[in-house]
């Protein structure tokens, strides 16, 4: 820590409307108190079947003003569970983390305007975006479908994957990573995985556990640090 933190003096300042300053708004941490502002009920259930997502133990009930989302029907494809623990450099769980996912549907189509491939079907019951607050033990939990394959750069085909964003107290900006399935088709040929040093690729592979869930631990730092991407 810088020694003068307690003695710094304030200076005069500009503001957001100064044209010389125009550019990307910088990132700041979500802090520890995002639970009544971001993760809604059902946010972590992309199947629309349950209320998982928020931490209701951290918000007085009369102050939970966020949505309670219900699906319009069961999406197509293989329903799966994704779980993991968020750990810091010392291996301690991170209870004030928030995880978001973005993925294609079972057919490999994104439910977003920029995916214009009309030959691959949309699923009216699947959006593909989810948000989960970590538990007191640092564990996050999603219910979703196993995504199909989507094209990569050139004529490549990407292995099935889920884009993951990590937020939390102490994270000044979003950390972006990817979840691949350990038994996924095309892992050897995946154009993004091949950019990752071979010794670290395992950090991106979710493993199927005995309870059927895909386990994807996120090591923010430390000996098993997860691969994070500059994208």
């Amino acid at each position: 820590m810088t020694l003068d933190l307690e003695h710094r003096e304030a200076l005069p300042r500009h503001d957001n409307q100064n044209p010389d300053l125009f550019g990307q708004t910088p990132s700041q941490t979500v802090g520890p108190y995002f639970h009544y502002g971001l993760p809604w009920k059902g946010g972590a259930d992309l199947l629309g079947q349950s209320e998982i997502g928020p931490r209701l133990d951290l918000v007085p009930p009369e102050h939970f003003v966020l949505n309670n989302a219900h699906g319009s029907g069961m999406p197509q494809g293989e329903a799966i569970e994704i779980k993991g623990v968020v750990l810091d450099a010392d291996g301690a769980p991170v209870p004030d983390a928030m995880i978001e996912i973005w993925q294609a549907n079972a057919a490999g189509r994104y439910n977003g305007d920029a995916d214009m491939r009309e030959d691959v079907p949309l699923d009216p019951h699947f959006i593909g975006f989810g948000r989960a607050a970590a538990s007191a033990e640092g564990i996050y939990h999603f219910r979703t479908v196993r995504p199909g394959r989507v094209p990569g750069p050139g004529n490549t085909l990407q292995a099935p994957h889920v884009a993951v964003s990590v937020f939390g107290r102490g994270l000044l900006k979003r950390l972006a990573t990817r979840l691949y399935f350990a038994d996924g088709e095309g892992l050897d040929m995946d154009p993004i995985l091949s950019l990752v040093p071979e010794t670290r690729r395992h950090t991106l592979l979710a493993q199927k556990r005995d309870d059927g869930a895909w386990w994807f631990p996120i090591h923010l730092s430390g000996a098993h640090e997860t691969v994070f991407f500059d994208l």
Partner: peptide, 15 residues
């Protein structure tokens, strides 16, 4: 304790 020490892996944006 909550920031990566390894360099981020630079990747192109895909779909």
């Amino acid at each position: 304790a909550r920031s990566p020490r390894e360099a981020l892996v630079h990747m192109p944006q895909t779909l």
